[in-house]
Simulated scan of single mutants.
Amino acid sequence: MKILLLGEYSRLHNSLKEGLLALGHEVTLVGTGDSFKNFPVDLSFEPKLTTKNWFFTFLKKVVFKLTNLNLEETEKGIRFYFLLPKLKNYDVVQLINSNAIETHPSWSIKLLNKLFSKNKNWILLICGDETSVVDALLDKKLSYSILTPYFEKQVPANYFDYSLKYTKPNYRKLYAFVSQNVSQIITSDFDYKLPLDSLNIKNTFLPNPINTDLIDYVEPAIHEKALIFLGINKKNAFKKGIPFFEKAVEIIKQKYPSKVEIIITENVPYQEYIQLYNQAHIVLDMVYAYDQGYNALEAMVKGKVVFTGAEKEFMEYYQLTERVCVNALPDVDYLVQELSFLIENPEEIINISKRARAFIEKEHHYVTIAQKYVDVWSKK
């Protein structure tokens, strides 16, 4: 099978590609690298002029201020247009988002129309912000979500512009075009499946693929101090509930000055991020979540104890009776209590670590998940 994967935000498509290649399929991954994360792609439409050239970077700011036109989006669209001759005769085209090309929505529709006309089966993967997901969250279909800080006015409303843009008419039109043309909608975890289910939108849930062959398990060796890692992406900090973690670790530092070491990073490239948290025993990932995202899963496969989403829907689906991670809640006292328990009971860090690795190998193995994708794509 010849497969085109369009877009990359978390390494999901890279791991899926590795699984598909192991199964003998031909795969091309097209994307921008997602800014500072710099994910590998086969064909790139990265906007180099408007992000790396000082003159065009300055011009981009001036034009946006005067006209509200984003020249970076324009550049992505132009670069993708010139890739189109190479993107044909694929058996499957999977978009990581309705806005996978990341250009002006009206341009996206025209470019996708050209792309779809040259290829066969089109799939929409929902693994992040999307029109249908944001609609459900705005309707408060879930008890809490990445929009909780928006409802509680914890930060200015414009902080949520990226998520809320999906509710604007031009993005709605783009989502409608994509969702009406694809044969399948796939969701990657419960943070996207639950919102779509609440709106009665048919979707197929396929867990994130993790390449366990590339990631070694290291059993936590806890000597004098427990090492806690908090990696912050400033753009998404409030949406993830990071302030709860920041307050919790400040209390933990005061409570256990000789028993813990805290590592905090901000906006570092993916590879550097991985290297920094390799030494940690505990990783603080996300509060506003029902399931684990990609960073959490990669930390779990390494044997980290991860504070992330692990709500009852997750526990019930996988029929878990013991914790493979810690369900993080938007409650500082609760987080301090859970961290304190682990610091005072280091053997539990080791127990959760072992269960986390076993869970990923069983439920998220990249080749097993890749085959599930192929099975879904093959449905008529």
Score class of each variant (00 low, 15 high):
Gln371Trp: 04
Leu276Ile: 11
Pro220Thr: 06
Phe82Thr: 11
Lys76Val: 00
Thr67Cys: 07
Gln184Leu: 09
Asn53Arg: 13
Leu284Met: 02
Lys225Gly: 10
Lys114Val: 11
Val92Glu: 02
Pro156Asp: 14
Tyr294Ile: 06
Leu29Pro: 06
Met1Ala: 09
Ile343Val: 15
Leu6Met: 15
Trp107Ser: 13
Phe205Trp: 12
Pro40Met: 11
Leu6Asn: 06
Asp197Val: 02
Phe341Asn: 14
Glu316Gly: 04
Glu338Arg: 12
Val268His: 02
Asp161Ser: 15
Asn327Phe: 03
Asp129Glu: 15
Lys312Asp: 13
Lys165Thr: 07
Leu6Cys: 11
Phe307Lys: 00
Ser143Tyr: 05
Val324Pro: 01
Leu95Val: 03
Ile185Met: 04
Phe229Ile: 05
Leu4Gln: 06
Lys153Val: 11
Ala237Lys: 14
Thr74Lys: 11
Ile228Gly: 00
Leu87Cys: 08
Asn200Lys: 14
Leu12Ile: 09
Arg79Lys: 15
Glu73Asp: 13
Arg357Tyr: 04
Val332Leu: 07
Asp139Val: 05
Tyr366Asn: 08
Asp129Trp: 12
Leu335Trp: 01
Ser188Lys: 01
Glu316Val: 10
Val326Gly: 00
Trp377Phe: 15
Val155Pro: 01
Ala289Cys: 01
Ser108Lys: 06
Lys118Ala: 15
Leu125Phe: 11
Lys114Gln: 13
Arg172Lys: 15
Lys362Gln: 14
Glu322Asn: 12
Phe116Cys: 07
Phe314Ala: 00
Lys354Ile: 09
Thr28Asn: 09
Ile146Leu: 14
Leu16Arg: 02
Ser353Arg: 00
Leu112Ser: 00
Lys304Asn: 11
Asn14Ala: 10
Asn345Phe: 06
Glu347Thr: 14
Tyr144Asp: 10
Ile232Lys: 03
Ile350Asp: 01
